[in-house]
Amino acid sequence: MDQPLLAYVAAVIAVLLPSLYLALVLLSPPPIVTRPSEKTYRSRASLTTPLLLPSLADAGSLDLSIIIPAYNESARLPAMLDTALAHLHASPSQPESESTSANCHGHPPRARTHEILIVDDGSKDDTSALALELATHHPATDIRIITLEQNLGKGGAVRHGMLHARGHRLLMVDADGASRFADLEALWERIDAIAPGNEPAVVVGSRAHLVKTEAVVKRSLLRNILMYGLHTILRIVGVGHIHDTQCGFKLFTRRAAQQIFPAQHLATWIFDVELLLLAKQLGIPVAEVPIEWHEVAGSKLHVVKDSLQMLRDLLVLRGNQLVGRWKVTP
């Protein structure tokens, strides 16, 4: 390569690299800010006076925290909550042990202690008021309602709930009730197997086995094309080993959540991929378990617009990790 051409290539690189870095900075979301009111919750025990939320950094104090992100979910939340509570109150007992579901120490079984955190993601309807009303109708469960002042996105709402949960294990679940809540037991058994002492671990509910069933085949052609395109991109960015990254039914041990969620930057739809990438980079094992799922009317996903946003956010995520702006520290 002659000298003038080398000089030209060097000049192009000298201009291109700073331009790409500047574009990355401009496209990256700002840090997620928690406002004072968002550090509090209301519940049946405190309908009008907000109480201070605990921290994920504290030791766990119950078996399971269920985090439900909710944006304008006054129509779908009641049925989902009824189904979840019916299962929780009828679910198998477990021993007096932090993590196991088999009575290996001879302790008498007990009910699985739990809480539900409904995170109202800046809804424009009466989601918070309805959630508080539902909490009064279910006194046997500690249902806490957190209201975000502005809409962050599903990932931001999940992150906020996780950062203030008390469970030794933490389940994120969508407010629409599309996932069968009873499949929690399959996730629980799997996490018992890979993290018997509640070591860092994640178990993902998977709908991959439904790809050739009516649940997916009846979706629009465009939605299926975008789904396959997303899977191809995910293989490129490093989470192709997970067949269903986007299912909103994921179980974390507390030690996994303590490492993953403080490092989360994305609040949009693609946040699930960031969580799984963080787990991979932190050496946290991730397992997949098939679950039942059905389409529920009222989805907030705008297929084309949100798919383009997902692609942009994936590029932003990997770009920031590659240049070291978003560092992962065990």
Rank of each mutant, 00 (worst) to 15 (best):
A135Y: 03
L53P: 10
P18C: 14
S19M: 09
G298K: 00
S179V: 00
L20S: 11
H241R: 09
R318P: 13
N72E: 14
L24A: 05
Q281M: 08
N72V: 12
P54R: 15
A267E: 07
L85A: 11
V173Q: 04
R44Q: 09
R110H: 04
K212D: 14
A84L: 08
I194Q: 06
G161R: 02
I67A: 05
E133N: 06
Q3K: 15
L210D: 05
Q150H: 07
A140G: 05
D313R: 07
R110E: 10
F249G: 03
D63W: 06
G155P: 04
T253C: 02
P262F: 03
T253Y: 00
L22H: 04
S299K: 05
T83V: 03
R223K: 12
R144N: 00
T100N: 11
L314Y: 14
W293R: 12
A102Q: 09
P54L: 15
W188S: 14
E115S: 08
L251E: 02
L26M: 06
A129I: 08
Y228L: 13
R190M: 13
H294M: 05
G156V: 08
A257N: 10
P109T: 09
V211P: 01
E189P: 00
E199D: 15
H209S: 12
V273I: 15
H231V: 04
L52V: 15
T329G: 13
I145Y: 00
H231T: 09
V296G: 04
L134R: 06
G238R: 13
M162D: 10
E133F: 03
